[in-house]
Structure formats: C-alpha cells, structure tokens
C-alpha cells in the first residue's frame, strides 16, 4: 500500500520522505492537468534523479486530453519517461495508452479518467490491458469502493479537492471580456459561489482550459483501514503544500495504526475549517433523477 502525492518543490524532498510518501508526482508542461506546479523538462530530469536517489518512485502527470497536433509531444514525454525510468504515468486519454503500447511501456501506465472507473468490471477490463493500475472514481459509495478494491485493487484518492469540471474553453477570460473587466484569469485564489449557495469552489484557467474544484476537501481517513489491496493518493491541487505534507504524514500514521482514523478525521474537520473536510460521495446515493425529486 503506497502513498502517492504531488511534488511542489524538490528542495522539500526530505520532508516528503519523512512524511511517508512513496511516490511523488511531477507535472510536465502541455501534457499535465491540474498541476500543483509545472516543471520544465530539464528540471524534471534532475528531479527524477534526486527522487530515485532517495529510493522514492516518480510518477508523471500526463492527464491532459491529447489533441491530434499534440500527439508528438505526448510521444516525446513517454520516451523521456521510459529513458528516465519513471515509475508511473497517470493518463486519462486512451490515445496515450496506444502510444505507450507502441513503445512497450503500458505497464507503467495508471489510468485516471476521474469519472469513468466506477465499477469492478470496468476496472478489470482496463487492468487487463496491461496497465500498472487504475485510479478509482470518487463519486461512488464506500461500499462500492470496498467491493472494487477487493476484486481488483486500484488506486484510491483519499485526500484532496474533487475536480468537478474541466472545460477546454477559457471561461474566465470570456466572462471578464463579456463584463468589460480586466482579464484576471491568471490570478490565483479565484472562487465561484453559486448564487443561492455559500460553497466557495476554486476555479482556475490555464493552457488546458478551465477547471472547477469542489469547495470541500475529500478525506477518507476514517475509512482507509478498511481498504486493502490498494494504493492511496493525495491530490495537491487546491490545497497547500503544508496541508499535503501533514495529510500524508497522518495517513501514514493511520495505516500504521499509530493513530485512529476516525479521530483524525474529526480533528481535521475542527482544525482546518477553510478546507471544509468531508467524506465526499462515500455515503451518498447520487442516483437521483429529476422524476423522483
């Protein structure tokens, strides 16, 4: 059972090591989405060497959609990853799988389409393609999550904001243009709040389009010790590095049974009100449709 998290700053490698992280995810340009930080390829080369030197694994964020004209860039990054012995490549577009298969590195791939791995049949079918792993969707119940991991393993996101929407459009720039305001789409710490609700949902725009994250932070600390046969992922986008390190450390302690997950979950709810910690869809049925409302 590994703990996987994003790399914010390679200077903090010892901190990552000390909090129990087993795999650090690096985000290269163009091919990544929702990166906590984008590193250029020359930086990444040195980072991989440093991370491997500490006996940690390296993951690559290649979760962006591959458009026809960017196939070459994805191909180059896969070749680079192969040469540098990157341990895991996160992807969400089956075109990336096809490219990886052509250079016999599909066994390094982890499929993370965010919403599409919602049952054990699909998880098994994708794993049977020779993938290293699949990341299970978050909008399923805990019962389903347990059943899927029991049957076929998988990687489970246990902490982070939920990515709710990814549009290829530049929605923030369009809005500022429409209301004749200076384009503030590059600004950090932008939020959306539905007109009748008070949840502050992070929103940002970059070269991959516009992303909306949940205002709440998903936390599975009280459930993790019931999950076997899977790896645990902490997603950094929308949370700061200090929070990520703390959450990794505490997750490690819970898995070691040094601390109690239920208590820790409750403590997080009290201690980090700005993160609005909750258990996401774990105990919610989302099968409602309009007729039955």
């Amino acid at each position: 059972m590994k703990i996987i998290a994003d790399c914010y700053d390679i200077q903090h490698l010892d901190d990552y090591l000390n909090c129990g992280i087993d795999r650090l995810i690096l985000s290269p340009p163009t091919t990544s989405i929702r990166p906590v930080r984008v590193f250029d390829m020359s930086e990444i080369k040195n980072m991989i060497l440093s991370i491997h030197e500490k006996q940690l694994e390296v993951g690559f964020n290649m979760l962006n959609f591959m458009m026809e004209e960017t196939i070459g860039e994805f191909q180059d990054q896969l070749l680079f990853a192969k040469k540098m012995q990157v341990d895991a490549i996160y992807f969400s577009d089956m075109g990336v799988y096809q490219l990886a298969k052509e250079i016999q590195m599909e066994n390094k791939l982890i499929y993370q389409p965010s919403t599409l791995i919602t049952n054990s049949n699909d998880a098994s079918h994708y794993l049977s393609l020779g993938l290293k792993n699949v990341v299970l969707s978050r909008e399923i119940t805990f019962d389903d999550l347990k059943r899927i991991t029991q049957k076929c393993g998988g990687e489970v996101v246990v902490f982070g904001r939920n990515p709710m929407m990814h549009s290829r459009r530049r929605l923030l720039s369009s809005y500022f243009e429409f209301i004749h305001q200076k384009d503030q789409s590059d600004e950090e710490n932008l939020y959306l709040m539905e007109e009748n609700r008070d949840e502050k949902m992070p929103v940002f725009q970059d070269e991959t389009g516009t992303h909306v994250l949940s205002g709440s932070t998903f936390c599975l600390f009280k459930e993790v010790d019931q999950l076997k046969n899977c790896d645990f992922k902490i997603e950094g986008k929308g949370i700061d590095e200090e929070m990520m390190i703390q959450a990794s450390y505490d997750l490690h302690q819970i898995l070691d049974h040094t601390i109690n997950g239920i208590e820790m979950f409750e403590q997080y709810q009290r201690k980090y009100p700005k993160y609005n910690i909750n258990d996401g869809f774990m105990y919610k049925k989302t099968s409602l449709v309009k007729e039955v409302l």
């Binding site: 959609f65 965010s114 929407m165 990814h166 099968s287 409602l288």
Partner: peptide
Amino acid sequence: ISYSGRCTLSNHMTNRDANRGG
C-alpha cells in the same frame, strides 16, 4: 461545457449523477 463524461458538478451540487442520467 465540460469535456463530456468528466463532470461531477451535478453530482456535487444536487446528488444527481450526470453520468447516470441525472
């Protein structure tokens, strides 16, 4: 507005799963 099939706004805001007809 989202890449189709990859959106959970409806799930999150109304408990209605967009990928299951809601």
